[in-house]
Amino acid sequence: MASEYGTQTAMPLPAGLSGALPARAGLGLKPEHLRSMLQHRPDISFFEVHAENFMVEGGPLLHFLHRLRDDYPLSVHGVGLSIGGMAPPDADHLTRLAGLLERFQPASFSEHLAWSTHNGVFFNDLLPLVYDPVSLARVCAHIDQIQERLGRRLLLENPATYVAYAGSSLDEADFIGQVIRRTGCGLLLDVNNLHVTCRNHQRDPLAYLRALPLHAVGEIHLAGCAEHTTADGGALLIDSHDRAVAEDVWGLYCTALTLTGPQPTLIERDANLPPLEEQLAEAQTADRMLCACLTA
């Protein structure tokens, strides 16, 4: 029941210093497309970039991001804090992140429920964690440190996973609910991740969706996924971000909106990029659903 999470025990932190993201569609933006976006100035409600791609001292990346920031609301999405890792978030990395957020004042900052660093080695992947009381306590401690250091609330993204652990004693949605209740962070509801995870682990996506702390949603992600046939003939979904959003995901998105109300909605595309018009068309579909699903 969503109402179970209706009261927060932690103090809410400000989401950002420049107001919230508009509850409309935005686009994920890779640095190599920054300049063409500045030329085309598409009619889009916000852009989202990966924090780690802009952790530099100067030069073209920061220059063009500043110009984009002048005209569009910005969301910064981290991929390197390793919140689910055994070690606390790296102090140097947090300092660089704090500097980036200070510089660009994004309306939103989000990260993943995953680990990516172990013993100082960075794996560049969002790796799944065991859901048990030990890792719950650790994740909460890490998020507390991050929110305190950044002085803002983060949105935590539900993962896309391909393996599950025999040792997990908590349900993923329940784990996320407890993290949010204890830390006061928000939820970045990635509907494609939800779809991928549920298919890969043969779960009911609607039940999983309803079990999430939907009152805490601050943003929604949509993306395309790929079918992968493993060597032993199993069919798995991969969070590939390399194609259009799947029909099933649009359906889940519509349902999610009826439960969360209107939310800033990001179309993520990281590979096999189509012409800008196609990406804008997907954003328009999301914008239409933001109205239609809520008035239906």
Partner: peptide, 22 residues
């Protein structure tokens, strides 16, 4: 030159090494 210096290296997708990722 912009192409070299603006190339993204971090992302949060999966599948670069899977056959289905194109």
């Amino acid at each position: 030159c912009f192409g070299i210096s603006m190339k993204a290296k971090n992302d949060c997708k999966a599948g670069a090494g899977t056959t289905c990722a194109g």
